[in-house]
Amino acid sequence: MRTDDDSWDITESVGATALGVAAIRAYESGQDDALFQDPYAAKLVSAVGSDGWNNLMSGMRNLGAGEQGGDDTDLRGWSMGSVLIARTVYFDEYFAAAVRAGIRQIVILAAGLDARAYRLEWPSGTRIFELDQPKVLAFKARALADDEPGADRREVAVDLRQDWPKALLDKGFEPGEPTAWLAEGLLRYLPGHAQDKLLEQVAELSAPGSRIALNLGTDKDMADQFRERRAKVMADAGVKIDLENLFYP
């Protein structure tokens, strides 16, 4: 169960959800008609050394079997898989539009295993701040030690329930410059008051011309469908994670 001051590594609690997202991105990147390319996703998942996450990444063991629109190994045909793939495309395009608008300051809240600093094209002078738990960022640093980001990437190791604005400013964030913020797969892991506070703090740090992209939860009926299918896919892959106890209303 979650507590107000809990923390996690990449294989624990909320950290493990980043592995699931990376596994789906790795799977999509391996398709002949892939909607995006994330060559770092497979590297990050493989660095964990877990058969379960590797199974999910490769689409093995009849994942998503029986769902309309997908065969036995097609993660695109799994409702949650298709959502994560579409979400990735949407936020990739969001950043492309932001840099076309002249924004050169990027902040990724709860960055997890997001590899956009490495895999997207960034104009000269772009600064990318990645905020997440210290152990999560340390894992990513080890796994991608031989890779170079395409922009000035700055790690901000901090819990988003703490004084993250100070930590961000200490890393060179310029509040007078327009910022493109991303909160992908984040809000449901924060209690309501922390969600409100986070967005208030983002607004306070945002100069004119800033923008934010985020995703919200689904309605109850869809959430119930996701829950049943998600449990089956995870069980088939051999991944043990109790997602329902990680979410807040």
Rank of each mutant, 00 (worst) to 15 (best):
G59L: 06
R61L: 12
R61S: 15
R61G: 06
N62Y: 12
N62I: 00
N62K: 00
N62C: 07
G64W: 03
G64V: 01
G66H: 06
G66M: 03
G66I: 00
E67G: 00
Q68V: 06
Q68Y: 13
G69E: 14
D72Y: 14
G81H: 08
S82I: 07
V83T: 11
I85D: 05
I85M: 11
A86Q: 10
A86Y: 02
R87S: 13
T88N: 10
F91E: 08
D92C: 02
E93Y: 01
Y94A: 11
F95H: 10
F95A: 05
A98R: 01
R100A: 14
R100N: 14
R100L: 11
I103P: 01
I103T: 13
I106Y: 02
I106H: 03
L109P: 02
A110W: 03
A111M: 07
G112Q: 04
L113C: 09
L113F: 09
A115G: 06
A115S: 15
R116V: 09
R116L: 10
A117D: 08
A117T: 04
A117H: 04
Y118S: 07
E121Y: 05
E121S: 12
E121P: 05
P123N: 07
T126D: 05
R127G: 04
I128C: 11
I128T: 06
I128E: 02
F129C: 03
E130T: 04
Q133M: 12
V136G: 07
V136F: 09
L137G: 11
L137C: 08
L137K: 03
A138W: 12
F139W: 14
A143C: 07
A143S: 12
L144C: 10
L144R: 03
A145C: 10
E148F: 02
E148V: 06
P149V: 07
G150P: 05
G150H: 08
A151C: 15
D152N: 11
D152W: 07
D152Y: 08
R153K: 14
R154I: 09
